[in-house]
């Protein structure tokens, strides 16, 4: 599975990844609008750089979770986790319910709010380029190798090596995205706390789709059980009423 590793300590904040993304997908300039957040992501900015104090530049993009919440909630299969790693989106299948936006723990999918015919927009890890054996536009554009592309296992190994080589440099010696919500395909190394990237500061390691799985598995038995219970109840009460009718032969209607 392909992945992206972004090392915050190496990023110089040149915005070349942002620019490359905008050029690759021909995205026009954005304006400050009511529905945009100040993290810079929008339907027209699929990756952005969040600037934190002391020259920390954190590139924000879709995390391409291994078990993505957005894919599991989509009622029409418009979002798909590919075997290569990227989570991609199909315009033609979408019906615009925006459940994916609700379900994403990182708040990544954005909406074409200003369009009459709106679609979900987010980073797709340049799926077409990956299929052709190229790397995504953003990692290709990075002059500092702060954000690199490769096999997920290899990138984790690289990250481990960097942590080993530089003890104490990285925050809690943690690879962000290795385990949260079951692991993501976009990994971060950082010297500051990156928990602001998700809504809840303490994301569980349990993949989010598992939370609904139990409820969804209960659907067929509940359906059948309810039917059986209703038929049974109907029959039992019917029989009891019949007996009561027989027991008091005449007059006692109520």
């Amino acid at each position: 599975m392909k992945a992206i590793l972004t090392d915050i300590t190496k990023c110089i904040g040149c915005f070349k990844c942002v620019k490359a993304c905008k050029e690759t997908y021909d995205l026009p300039g954005d304006y400050p609008r009511r529905w945009t957040q100040n993290d810079g992501l929008s339907a027209l900015n699929w990756t952005s750089i969040v600037i934190k104090p002391d020259d920390h530049f954190i590139r924000k993009q879709c995390r391409h979770c291994i078990e993505p919440a957005c894919v599991s909630v989509c009622p029409v299969g418009a979002l798909k986790k590919t075997k290569e790693g990227p989570v991609i989106y199909d315009n033609d299948k979408c019906m615009g319910c925006r459940y994916c936006m609700m379900a994403c723990p990182y708040g990544i999918p954005r909406y074409d709010w200003d369009q009459r015919i709106p679609y979900i927009r987010k980073c797709i890890m340049c799926y077409d380029r990956i299929k052709n054996g190229q790397q995504p536009a953003c990692t290709a554009a990075c002059p500092e190798e702060a954000t690199i592309f490769g096999e997920r296992d290899e990138l984790i190994a690289i990250a481990r090596q960097r942590i080993l080589d530089n003890p104490g440099k990285y925050y809690q010696d943690k690879i962000w995205g290795e385990h949260e919500v079951g692991g993501t395909c976009v990994l971060y190394l950082s010297d500051i706390d990156l928990s602001f990237l998700s809504y809840d500061r303490k994301l569980d390691n349990e993949p989010l789709p598992h939370t609904t799985e139990a409820a969804m598995k209960a659907v067929p038995p509940v359906f059948a059980g309810m039917g059986a219970a209703m038929i049974g109840l109907h029959w039992v009460i019917g029989r009891r009423m019949k007996r009561e009718q027989e027991n008091k032969p005449k007059g006692g209607s109520e």
Partner: peptide, 20 residues
Amino acid sequence: LGLPWNIWHPVVQWQHHSAL
């Protein structure tokens, strides 16, 4: 719905893992 004319999509595009 953003694309209300696609409201029938769940009828043909089955996604049994989605509560919606």
